[in-house]
Simulated assay, not measured.
Amino acid sequence: MLIPLVLLIAGVGLVLVGVNKLNGAEPTCYGRPMSPGDVCHVQVKGSFGDGMPEPHDTTYQEQLDGLTSGGWTAIGFGVVLLALAAVITISWAATAARQDREY
């Protein structure tokens, strides 16, 4: 019974973290809060190594989308863990009931 309990706790935790991330998302540009319509201009100088993407200016909405995507990912994984905990619990309960009928 420990596995479903761990999955349940982890699932609820991930959902709560995801919801918190969605509600607390505030885009910033080099530490300064942004508001709708703002553009964060790149302040990086120098060359970039192979395989590294070249930095580019980002809008308020792009910054917000980047912040909230992690929240949705956490919620998605949390829901999957909760569903898995339910399936395991139901499976174990059905197996226990079947064994009780056999004896």
Rank of each mutant, 00 (worst) to 15 (best):
M1Y: 10
M1E: 12
I3R: 12
I3K: 14
P4G: 07
L5D: 01
L7D: 04
L8P: 01
L8A: 10
I9L: 15
A10C: 13
V12M: 11
V12C: 06
L14K: 11
V15T: 09
L16Y: 05
L16C: 12
V17W: 12
V17Q: 14
V17H: 08
G18A: 07
V19N: 09
V19M: 13
N20S: 15
N20K: 09
K21N: 11
K21I: 08
L22M: 14
N23G: 15
A25M: 10
A25Y: 08
A25E: 12
E26A: 10
T28C: 02
Y30S: 11
G31A: 08
R32L: 12
P33M: 09
P33L: 10
P33I: 09
M34N: 10
M34V: 11
M34R: 07
S35M: 11
S35F: 03
P36C: 09
G37Q: 07
G37I: 05
G37R: 02
D38N: 06
V39A: 03
V39K: 05
V39E: 07
C40G: 07
C40H: 06
H41A: 13
V42H: 06
V42F: 05
V42E: 13
Q43Y: 01
K45G: 04
K45E: 14
K45M: 12
G46S: 01
S47G: 00
G49R: 05
G49D: 06
G51W: 04
G51R: 04
G51T: 05
M52A: 14
P53T: 06
P55W: 03
P55Y: 01
H56R: 15
H56L: 00
D57Q: 11
D57E: 09
T59W: 00
Y60W: 07
Y60R: 03
Q61E: 14
E62S: 03
Q63I: 02
L64C: 01
D65A: 14
G66M: 09
L67E: 10
T68K: 15
S69Q: 14
G70W: 01
G70C: 00
W72S: 06
W72D: 06
T73A: 09
I75R: 07
I75H: 02
G78D: 07
G78Q: 08
V79A: 13
V80L: 14
V80Q: 06
L82A: 01
A83W: 04
A83L: 15
A83R: 00
A85G: 04
A86K: 02
V87C: 09
I88Y: 04
I88N: 04
T89H: 00
T89A: 13
S91E: 10
S91L: 15
W92F: 13
W92K: 15
A93P: 00
T95S: 12
A96W: 12
A97R: 15
A97L: 14
A97G: 05
A97D: 11
R98L: 15
R98M: 15
R98G: 09
Q99H: 08
Q99S: 11
Q99A: 13
D100T: 10
D100G: 05
R101M: 12
R101S: 11
E102D: 04
E102Y: 00
